[in-house]
Simulated assay, not measured.
Amino acid sequence: MAKREVDIVIISDVHLGTYGCHAKELLKYLKSIKPKMLILNGDIIDIWQFSKSYWPETHMKVVRRILKFVTDGVPVYYLTGNHDEMLRKFTDFNLGTFQLLDKIVLNIDGRKAWIFHGDVFDVTMQHSKWLAKLGAVGYDTLILINSFTNWLLTKMGKPKMSFSQKVKARFKDAVKFINQFEQTAADLAVEKAYSYVICGHIHHAEIRQIQSTEKNGSVLYLNSGDWVESLTALEYHNREWRIFKYNPDDFKQETEDDDHTDAEDLDAKLDVRVLLERFKQETH
């Protein structure tokens, strides 16, 4: 199956190492594309909730696939988020075409793009990190229960449902938070004279022009969504942005043709669990 060429791919909020992560679907997507640049915009590995007892092979395969892009010479930028904030002590680390950063400004066809995870705008993260971590555990538990419920619904021939989306829809504060997040990002981007501001963090994929409330001007706000619920990514190709939405019907012909090659190229003995344990130990 021919790989689809894309100029830039941006993914965020994958949360590898948690039960809610759709690593299998993400792997299929990554294997279907040939990007010129890959940006991992935070919360790729969930170090907050990382446990040595849960690291499925599919999660390891996602890591191998990302590293394969690096070995193939594709520029890969890993921008830290709140769930992988422990990596921030290693900011500016680079290895070949791989760079670990907190944020980045790119010139994309003559337009400046300001790219960062977005947790800096989250008041809970700034003042009550323990509450944010507790919420993360609750969210992951909700996703796990939701997955089991959807399995039962599928067996019964009924449509799937999203618990968290229903919760968000019923609480005005959730919608208000998303709107404030987007507006804050846009206001700052206009002030800094950027054409694009690209975030993750809120698990809500979006592309829309936002007018600044403080200065004359507007900016194109983009959010890559997540790979826990929405299964989305941002793609830039032929001077146009679009939101990629995973559809299982598009990947029915996908095969496991090169999984063994990934392991051979990247050393199958690479144990991410050991590395993550070291990160956690060094930060406590």
Rank of each mutant, 00 (worst) to 15 (best):
M1I: 07
K3H: 02
D7C: 10
I8P: 01
I11N: 01
I11S: 03
H15C: 08
L16S: 01
G17Y: 05
L27Q: 03
L30T: 07
D46N: 15
D46P: 06
I47Q: 04
W48C: 01
S53N: 12
H59V: 00
V63P: 00
R65T: 08
I66K: 07
K68G: 02
T71G: 01
D72R: 10
V74L: 06
V74Q: 08
P75Q: 12
Y77K: 04
L79C: 03
H83P: 02
D84K: 01
M86I: 04
K89H: 06
T91Y: 11
T91L: 13
D92Y: 14
D92G: 06
F93K: 10
N94A: 04
L101G: 09
D102P: 13
L106R: 15
N107S: 11
R111A: 10
R111K: 15
K112S: 09
W114V: 00
I115C: 01
V120E: 13
D122N: 13
V123E: 14
S128V: 09
L131K: 15
A132I: 05
L134E: 12
D140Q: 14
T149S: 08
N150S: 02
W151C: 07
L152E: 06
T154A: 12
K155S: 05
K158Q: 15
P159A: 04
K160F: 02
V167T: 07
A169H: 11
K172A: 06
K172F: 01
K172M: 00
D173L: 11
A174Q: 12
I178G: 02
Q180R: 14
Q180E: 07
F181K: 07
F181W: 03
E182D: 09
A185D: 02
A186Y: 08
V190K: 01
V190M: 01
E191A: 09
K192R: 14
K192P: 00
Y194P: 01
S195E: 13
S195R: 15
Y196S: 03
V197P: 01
C199M: 10
H201N: 14
H201C: 02
H204K: 11
H204A: 07
A205K: 11
A205H: 09
R208E: 06
T213H: 12
T213L: 13
E214P: 00
N216P: 02
V219H: 06
L220N: 09
S224H: 06
D226Y: 03
W227I: 07
E229R: 15
E229H: 09
Y236F: 15
H237Q: 15
H237T: 14
H237V: 10
H237E: 08
H237G: 09
E240Y: 06
F244W: 11
P248G: 02
D249Q: 14
Q253W: 05
E254N: 08
T255C: 03
T255D: 12
E256S: 14
D258L: 11
D259M: 03
D259K: 02
H260K: 15
T261L: 11
D262G: 09
K269A: 12
D271N: 13
R273N: 13
E277M: 09
R278V: 09
F279R: 08
F279D: 01
K280Y: 06
